[in-house]
Design a protein around this nucleic acid. Structure first.
Lengths: 130, 130
DNA sequence: CATTGACTTAGAGTGAACTTTAAGGTTTAT
DNA sequence: ATAAACCTTAAAGTTCACTCTAAGTCAATG
């Protein structure tokens, strides 16, 4: 069992964000200590890892909440979850390819600017010497 | 010269967004017709392409506005712009690598679910036959 | 020359994902 | 036993990047 503080350290999320995720039903079933403090189980930690994974590949919190709700319903939702992951995977791949194309453009622009910068610096030097 | 409508069609941005970008100083110097309508030049279109490129690789509008402001100041800012592009390029590469790692995790999860789904379906079939 | 549709502005509203605040209760170390 | 640190909740506030609204102007067509 982990306190919210330990979970923050492990995941990089803030306590505020963890509480927010609970409220938004991403991980709604976190246990409580006698004093009412959150206690995260190893299963919770695994779920959180999945949540971070989906979030960091651009899935919206709403969709993640849907996915986690399906997971809580058990094996009868395996197919639905498979389909979600497949679609998500495809959209991530597409976005990465798009990013790569845009990045190539940034690289070309950078190379162009670098050349112009060298020219400009030589020009400045020759102006100084005259 | 292009009307805002034509620019929308070429860039995929809405007229609202183009006006918003003007207000936010991403492309603040768009000309006007006698009647006050926006007229985008070929140079404006090139700048817009750069804006989209930076935006689609995750640069904030604020940073893009800074970059475009430097560009308007001329060659004396070449070095500053080079540095911005270099930094941006590096951060995009990092993000893409991170994305790839997360995507691999999604793929592994998907494969795991697929296997479990096949098992589950066979189980259901044998329950039906009994 | 009137109507339709696209354009103008300033400013308010939206949705996502937090982030902060206020007011208080709990744990831990001394 | 008490102070400091940490936790609780509900609700309001923030930031980003739009997106929409209202009230009016302009251009093209029959």
């Amino acid at each position: 069992m982990y306190t919210i503080r330990e979970v923050c350290e492990k995941t990089g999320l803030t306590a505020h964000t963890l509480r927010y995720y609970e409220k938004e039903k991403l991980l709604p079933s976190v246990g409580r200590s006698a004093g009412g403090f959150r206690q995260y189980s190893d299963e919770d930690m695994e779920k959180l890892a999945m949540i971070c994974c989906l979030k960091n590949t651009g899935m919206s919190l709403q969709e993640i909440a849907q996915f986690m709700a399906l997971a809580r319903e058990g094996d009868s939702t395996l197919q639905a979850r498979c389909e979600m992951l497949k679609k998500h995977r495809e959209s991530v791949l597409e976005r990465m390819e798009e990013m790569q194309r845009y990045l190539d453009k940034v690289t070309r622009k950078y190379d162009f600017y670098s050349k112009r910068l060298i020219e400009y610096e030589q020009q400045q030097k020759s102006l100084q010497n005259s």
